[in-house]
Design a protein around this nucleic acid. Structure first.
Lengths: 181, 181
DNA sequence: GCTATGTTTCACTACTTACTGAAATCCCCG
DNA sequence: CGGGGATTTCAGTAAGTAGTGAAACATAGC
């Protein structure tokens, strides 16, 4: 095992590696709880804590997954905008690096989930509401009302998240935190 | 097909049922995108738009699932606090009804996800940070820094969500929305 | 055009999670 | 205490997702 940490002892390198592995594993587990496939979350974790861009082979090696699978997840992460591929001059291999700024990450994820999940849900609710608002029965009125309330809530959420995710500075959150007390 | 909607024509009843089915289906799909099992989300949707409490048999019938599965999901929803079971006087069957207030639903979900997913993640990050903060190598310092930033972000999020979810009134959100413009 | 190097696709397999159904258990009431 | 409706449990199965690996595809340089 050759060391990348000139100032550290072999023991320290091992300790670091253990912490990194723990981080990657747990980030993967957390990903699945939030509806993101485990490996994708792990690839993201790996790139997030890497000090230099990595190749597909690095990922395969580190996470012990096949080339095809590594490729799929790297592409998907690019699709989210959470990582980007770069091809250094004179090289043929593609290297990947993650957006490291937590606030930017948060904004990207928020925007994407809004677009992929909240917006479609709002459309369904809108549709359900429109199809029943003119009906007469008490059941229909109750349904229409409930659906409308849900829709209004999600629309408000959507608007709020848009504003938060659009704002450049991450200072809003600590601000809001203090202000809400 | 007997009608529950005295004032509605047969056509209207069918229209309403179609809208309800659409709602249940889509709510289930949305659930799975957010890491919640589809049937559980559908049971929740069904109870959310029902004007009266339902029994396990009603759920089985409506969603075409087995008794065991219906039971499992009802229990889990009770565990989240999103529905509650009631046994009317003189009856032996248990009826279930959902919390219908959207803001309360949101608070419950927020609190539970915080507790089940954000807190554990913070603990992992804390652990990873503590295990590496004293190490010397450049790699170790970078890792420690990144992990710390992540942790601080999640802790802020956690605090903010706590405050939002604790507040009684749903007026905070529209308020924040206007204020952020 | 041909070869060397790297990437993508996709049919297949492995694994995980959802779901079933029937037996076991619970518990109210006579 | 025992009959009967209601609920829970759980071994087994189905369905869905993740992951593999090799072949097809790109492309740059010779």
């Amino acid at each position: 095992m050759k060391s990348n940490t000139p100032a550290g002892s072999a023991g320290e390198a091992a300790q670091l590696q253990a912490a990194k592995d723990e981080f990657i594993t747990q980030w993967g587990a957390m990903g699945s709880a939030w509806g993101i496939n485990r490996t994708m979350a792990q690839v993201h974790a790996l790139l997030m804590i890497s000090t230099k861009p990595l190749t597909t082979d690095d990922i395969m090696d580190e996470l012990k997954v096949s080339r095809g699978h590594a490729n799929t997840n790297l592409r998907e992460l690019c699709g989210w905008g959470l990582i980007r591929g770069i091809i250094p001059k004179g090289e043929r291999k593609e290297y990947f690096e993650a957006e490291k700024d937590i606030w930017k990450m948060f904004c990207i994820i928020t925007r994407e989930r809004k677009r992929r999940e909240i917006r479609p849900a709002i459309n369904v609710l809108k549709d359900c509401h429109e199809r029943t608002e003119t009906l007469k029965g008490g059941e229909a009125v109750a349904f229409s009302k409930q659906v409308k309330a849900l829709r209004e809530f999600l629309e408000m959420m959507d608007g709020l998240l848009s504003k938060i995710a659009r704002s450049e500075k991450s200072t809003i959150l600590p601000w809001a935190l203090k202000w809400l007390s």
